Computed example of a mutant assay.
Amino acid sequence: MRPGTHVTDAILRLLSRDWAGLGIALLPAAAGAWCVTLGTGWRVLGGVLCAVALALGLGSLRHLVHVARVRVRYPPPGRMIDVGGYRMHVLAEGDAGPKPTVVWMPGGHAGGYAMYRLHTLTRERTRSVLVDRPGSGWSDPGPFPRTTAAEAVELLTALEQAGERGPYIFVGHSFGGLLMANAARRRPDLVAGLVLLDPTPPDAVAFGPSLATLRHAARDQTALALRHLFGLHALAPKNETHSPEDPARVLAMVETRTKANCAAASILRELSPGGITRVGWQTVVHDGELSPLPLLLVAPRDLTGGDKIFDTVDDPEESARVRHFFLTVRERFLSASSTARRVYTPEGTGHDFPDHVPEFVVQVVGSLLDEHAPGAPDPL
């Protein structure tokens, strides 16, 4: 473990507590009071420090009031499941009957509620489960550091402790796809199929060009945690079209708690060459490791909507190479299972296609459900 990692984890662990702002505000307050006692020459500095402490304290109180209101207005829609001293939120609905249970995992480090539309479309035909990773959604922060490998174990534990029973079809989008593949590798006996929605390929992190969106992701989440901690919550944009009870709006409000940003900041450190090197052996799913598990790789044909991310260089030839790299590197997931299949998303869709064409995603997942229906022919 590189120097400073323990310190970073300790800082994120502290910032993940919504009351931490009050403790931080005491530092300039104490320093300011000490300066005042030193005499006239120090009183101005002491006054400035006390003013800073007051501003931080008021901001922290504003955040705590906001958190209390959110807790009352948006209680957990599912159950809080103990996974070993901390709790994970699990929302399970529908009757599986003879079919597998579908478990959803969104991208980034968002709470499971981000896939609520997919969940509602699925629960009518089988059991559907949304799980909040520690720190996200309604789940407790959990231990630090956050890693994909640890969260795969936590996911499996939460499902077991919630009384859910396989077989499962694991569905994961983007970074959530990497998590679901990792969970399937650990417990293939519980998994009937794996659907990866444009999953994050570790090779892109280890060998791809340096992308600012990945390089600064952990830093940006830490900065957002500090803003929230001192009451600087982002206001809804003027063109906001979500209703107050829209799942995206609900999750955005719930995740103004600092634990969401701190957990994301911790795990997103994996998305760097050094980070993936440290955790790669436990995180990456290698060629053939999921055989013969049915695996569907669902992704766009091109990089629609990704120009700002992928066109990182001015040289046209180098830019073309970058785009080719990102188009092909995700295909490595097809090597994980001998029964893997490729599915293209509708024309014009990009990386965020689960939000834009949820019916298509449910249809793809339904194709695996139908293969496990009683009397269904062998797809191979």
Rank of each mutant, 00 (worst) to 15 (best):
S272E: 05
G288P: 02
I309S: 09
I169Q: 04
T283M: 02
E93H: 00
I169G: 07
G366P: 04
G172M: 13
G142E: 06
S337Y: 04
P202D: 12
L155M: 14
M180T: 14
A373V: 04
P77Q: 03
P76E: 06
V191R: 00
R117H: 05
T120S: 05
H119W: 09
G39L: 11
E164C: 07
R123G: 05
F326W: 15
T256Q: 14
L121Y: 05
S335C: 06
R341C: 06
L369S: 12
A376L: 11
G274T: 12
S128N: 03
S272N: 01
V171N: 08
T241P: 01
V195R: 03
L229M: 13
G41Q: 09
R17F: 04
S319D: 13
G163M: 10
P167S: 10
N182I: 00
L368W: 09
G274H: 06
Y344C: 12
A51M: 14
V131Q: 00
H109C: 11
A31P: 05
M105A: 13
Q161G: 06
L297T: 02
Q282A: 11
F360Q: 07
G176V: 04
T345N: 01
C262K: 04
L190M: 12
G39V: 11
T277E: 14
F333Y: 15
V362R: 13
G21A: 07
A299R: 15
D18I: 01
T126Y: 05
V44M: 14
V284K: 01
T222V: 09
H109K: 08
R323N: 01
V357Q: 11
T148D: 00
P76M: 10
R125L: 10
A29S: 05
G97T: 10
G107S: 11
D287K: 14
G46M: 07
Y74G: 01
L49D: 09
L293E: 03
I309Y: 02
G208W: 02
A248S: 15
E124D: 13
H66Y: 14
G176T: 01
K238S: 10
H228F: 13
A162S: 15
Y113A: 09
A236N: 08
L38Y: 01
R219S: 11
R146D: 03
E317C: 04
D315G: 03
